[in-house]
Computed example of a mutant assay.
Amino acid sequence: MSPIRVVIADDSQLAREVLRDILTRDGDIEIVGEAANGQEAVELARRLSPQLITMDLTMPVMDGLSAIEEIMHTKGVPIVVISDSADAQTAYQALEVGALEVLPKPGLDEEDAQRLLSRVRLLSGVSVITRLRRRASAARTPTPVRLPVPGPCPVASRGFQRVVAIACSTGGPQALARLLSKLPKGFPSPIVIAQHISPGFIDGMATWLGSLCALPVSVAQSGERLCPGHIYLCPPESQLSVTGQHRLQLTPSPAQTLYHPSCDAMLHSVASVYGADSIGVILTGMGRDGVSGLRAILLAGGTTLAQDEASSVIYGMNQEAVNAGVVQHVLGLDELPARLLREVRFTPSPWREPQ
């Protein structure tokens, strides 16, 4: 089998050397070009037709975000953003214009190296499409993360009927953006999300999603009360659960935990507390995290949904759930918002603004 052809784009020679050493260690990946700025990356992508590009974001001449947009406009190539967590907000804008994954810059840790290798091997085979350039007017300045204000949720009762729990991994941020951005204000259920993510990037993801959604988005805080119409993201270093008092609880992830955060832990907790009022959704991603939790929701009488293969970046977690027989409805990504609105019995307000 021919080696995977990769271009590295980073203005730091040391960073390029680290990436080159990791990627070429097993002989199945070939570095066919190296770029010190975004413009060089665009030219190498056009001339060398690599199977994947690793892209830094902060570079001279042309930054990584602009380079990704240009590459995806001319000829789609799988792109993995490799960035410092300080650039997390921009990294998620990179996903919006076509990048597939965001990873932290690897250090000398073997776990970092293996994570990078597995992602490059997996994503080099993903089919991507060319994209239209964003209009200048479409560019958005992300809004600050909106934290829940204590007090608005009913204390005597939970204030909602159903709870939506979403599990996702590789390709998940893009899927979440498309799904959550179509949910209207007044959505009557809280939404809790376990997205596999590297430490340091969850705040940037919350800010990015918050700039796209009508609903408030925040990183979950231990002890806060679940509110209808609010989206909560689990931080990667913790496991998210819900309590009988309708509050969120964060506990440190066990050392042996394979996935961060654990989708199964969150889904099992929602199933145990909310039973038939639980709605479990499993989206694109690698591995099988979430299958056991989705089974718990199904056995508790809840509803289970999965993203279909055609709309998934990686048909992995969701495929495992479908094959295990724990999914009631398999839907395209663009069909999921309407299905969720039906499941939570959303009724639009008849009120209209005065003309």
Rank of each mutant, 00 (worst) to 15 (best):
R121P: 15
A165Q: 02
Q93M: 08
S85D: 06
A165N: 02
D109M: 08
A86T: 11
E101I: 02
Y92K: 00
P148A: 11
I166M: 11
D87M: 06
E101F: 05
P154S: 13
Y92W: 12
S169P: 10
C168R: 01
P173T: 01
L132C: 10
R131I: 00
A94D: 01
V97P: 02
R121E: 15
A99T: 09
C168T: 15
E101V: 03
K105I: 06
R133V: 05
L123S: 09
L103E: 02
P104R: 10
P154T: 14
A139Y: 14
T143C: 04
L100G: 11
A94N: 02
T143P: 01
R146M: 07
S137F: 09
G171K: 07
P150H: 08
V126Q: 08
A94K: 00
E96G: 07
E110N: 01
R146D: 12
R146Q: 15
R135D: 14
I129Y: 11
L132S: 15
A86Q: 10
A91V: 07
Q161F: 11
R140I: 15
P152Q: 10
A156R: 15
V97G: 01
P150S: 08
S127L: 10
L123F: 13
R131K: 15
R134Y: 08
L103G: 04
G171L: 07
A88D: 12
P144Q: 02
T130H: 13
R131L: 03
A88C: 04
L103F: 04
A139K: 11
Q93E: 12
R133H: 14
G171Q: 09
T90S: 09
P152E: 14
V164P: 03
R140H: 12
A138F: 04
S157A: 14
S85Y: 13
K105F: 14
K105T: 13
L103C: 09
E96A: 12
L108K: 13
V149D: 08
R133D: 09
L132F: 05
V128D: 06
G151K: 06
